[in-house]
Amino acid sequence: MMLAIFLTAATFILSGALHYWIMSRSIRHADRITLFPGGRLVLVLCISGIAHLSVVALYAATYGAGLALHLGSFAELKPLRAMDVFYFSLVSYTSLGLGDIVPTGHLRLVAGVEALNGFLLISCSAAYLFLFMSHQGKDGAR
């Protein structure tokens, strides 16, 4: 159980740092780029998507590590494919929780924390987008 807690906490911290690093660096540079009207917003939306997919991939790797450490399994998946684990991670991150794939054992802890983390990071992206758009409105369209 302690190993699952450590793995989950480490992933939570790393995912927050990864999301922050991608968003803060990219938005800082996106402000300097001259694009068509609305182009920078589209660019920032794409960057936000990349940040979220990067975090989903990190959680998918965590599930892979949890499987290798025998912390749990995905009982319904025989054979288990990387895309299935990535799909489960994406569904958990967005808090959809479709239930077609269900983790067992201590991997359930990772899934629960991933849903919380996804909610928090999606909210952070919304705040970044709001600040970016507010800044664009003050400077006018470039």
Rank of each mutant, 00 (worst) to 15 (best):
L35C: 01
M83P: 00
A111G: 11
I101E: 01
V44M: 00
H106K: 15
V42Y: 01
S24E: 13
V55D: 05
W21G: 06
L71M: 09
V42P: 00
L121P: 08
V113P: 05
K138R: 15
A9T: 14
G112E: 11
L109Q: 10
T11M: 10
V113M: 08
F132G: 09
A111R: 06
V85F: 01
E76D: 10
F12E: 02
D139V: 14
T104I: 04
G39C: 04
A68Y: 12
S73C: 05
L121I: 06
F36H: 08
F88K: 03
A115I: 12
L14F: 13
R108A: 13
A61Q: 09
M23L: 07
L107Q: 01
V44Q: 02
F36A: 13
R25D: 08
G112T: 09
A10F: 11
A115K: 14
A65I: 13
C46F: 11
V44R: 02
F88P: 05
G64Q: 05
I47L: 09
L67T: 07
Y63E: 01
A65N: 04
L53H: 06
F130D: 11
A126H: 04
G99C: 01
I5H: 06
S134P: 06
E114S: 11
L121A: 00
L7A: 10
H19A: 09
L80A: 11
I13R: 01
L131N: 15
K138S: 14
Y87M: 06
L109P: 04
A126N: 00
L58P: 03
V102M: 10
R25E: 08
L77S: 00
L80H: 00
F12Q: 07
